[in-house]
């Protein structure tokens, strides 16, 4: 399908694709039927780059992260597609194989990071344990020394290693979580709303931290957030998700500088900014469609200003705006 060719192999960079997601579909069995949380999305990620997945709640961005980690809940199910990580398909892997991969090669910074630390264990011990689980031969002192290094890396004072999580502030906990994600030198980190619960100033510091670490260590990053401004701040590439589909994909400058999909435009128009002309915010009318029985045509057409009759009938195709910029919309050529 042309989605894939548009997204991969075209970037004239020598770096190889670390991750290639092809036509991935994931859903949940619910009482009301099968909910197609992610429906046929494709993207690729090169080593050392960062991809931001942005969309509103229920658009499937968290499901993408959980699927990559192999951490879908019991009622979740991959219905199709491939996830090639270093050439191997993660979808085919057993739970045991995934366990070996998790933290070692793919780590995650969770949405509810505040609660991800065990409250009755010292922070150093928790991180050391994460290291030791994946390198059982390592002596414990060595593991603790590595924890110290990690603390330095994320700018946490070393003497706070021995503390319990509740003695940390929200920002410090988040740093500890990042340290934990870095513990096994992963190649890919998935950060799902890592700063949502934090205040502006702390959020800024954490984001700077993540950017710096990513640059220094050459880690690839998938950054998931509902907040456009944060995603734009952190990511090289942007994927805009709506109702389980990727609707626009490209470099940050392309997607936010020259947004083509009407959803991307609407999202940007509904967002208050700090500078520039003070303009009226334009909310997106209507509600997101049901993912149990999604509309057959474009999923955004009910809420779209430019929708024509054909939009609601036919599934839109990917259009290539530039080698790196593609849009799932039939009417977006005029910018």
């Amino acid at each position: 399908m042309n989605a894939r060719t548009a997204g991969t192999g075209n970037r004239n960079s020598e770096a190889e694709d670390l991750l290639e997601v092809e036509d991935l579909s994931v859903g949940y069995r619910t009482k009301r039927g099968f909910m197609r949380a992610v429906d046929g999305i494709s993207f690729s990620l090169k080593k050392g780059r960062s991809l931001g997945l942005v969309g509103e709640s229920g658009c499937g961005k968290t499901t993408v992260g959980m699927t990559l980690m192999g951490l879908l809940p019991p009622n979740g199910e991959v219905r199709g597609g491939r996830i090639l990580f270093k050439g191997e398909d993660l979808v085919q892997k057993t739970e045991e194989e995934m366990q070996r991969l998790r933290w070692n090669e793919i780590a995650m910074i969770f949405q509810a990071a505040m609660n991800a630390l065990n409250p009755v264990q010292r922070v150093e011990k928790q991180i050391a344990e994460a290291i030791l689980t994946h390198a059982p031969d390592l002596p414990e002192e060595e593991a603790l020394r590595r924890v110290e290094g990690l603390f330095q890396m994320v700018n946490l004072p070393g003497e706070r290693m021995h503390d319990y999580p509740h003695q940390y502030s929200g920002g410090m906990k988040q740093r500890a979580i990042i340290a934990m994600a870095l513990a096994c030198n992963p190649d890919l980190i998935i950060a799902d709303e890592p700063t949502t619960a934090l205040d502006v100033i702390v959020q800024h510091q954490i984001l700077e931290e993540i950017k710096a670490l990513q640059d220094d260590l050459g880690i690839s990053l998938i950054f998931i957030s509902h907040d456009i401004s944060i995603v734009a701040d952190v990511s090289h590439d942007i994927g805009v998700m709506y109702a389980g589909q990727l609707v626009e994909y490209g470099s940050r400058e392309e997607v936010f500088g020259d947004p083509r999909h009407y959803y991307t435009r609407a999202l940007l128009a509904s967002y208050p900014t700090l500078a520039g002309e003070k303009r009226d915010l334009v909310p997106i009318p209507g509600e997101t469609p049901s993912l149990v029985a999604p509309p057959s045509g474009c999923r955004f057409c009910d809420r779209c200003d430019a929708a024509a009759e054909a939009c609601s009938l036919e599934r839109p195709d990917w259009l290539e705006i530039s080698p790196t910029h593609r849009v799932l919309c039939a009417r977006c050529l005029s910018s």
């Binding site: 502006v200 800024h204 401004s229 944060i230 734009a232 701040d233 700090l274 500078a275």
Partner: peptide, 16 residues
């Protein structure tokens, strides 16, 4: 001023 510094401002950095 610190609050304003901390806000992500993609594309608006020159104006602030």
């Amino acid at each position: 001023r610190a609050l304003i510094d901390a806000l992500p401002k993609f594309g608006l950095a020159e104006q602030i």
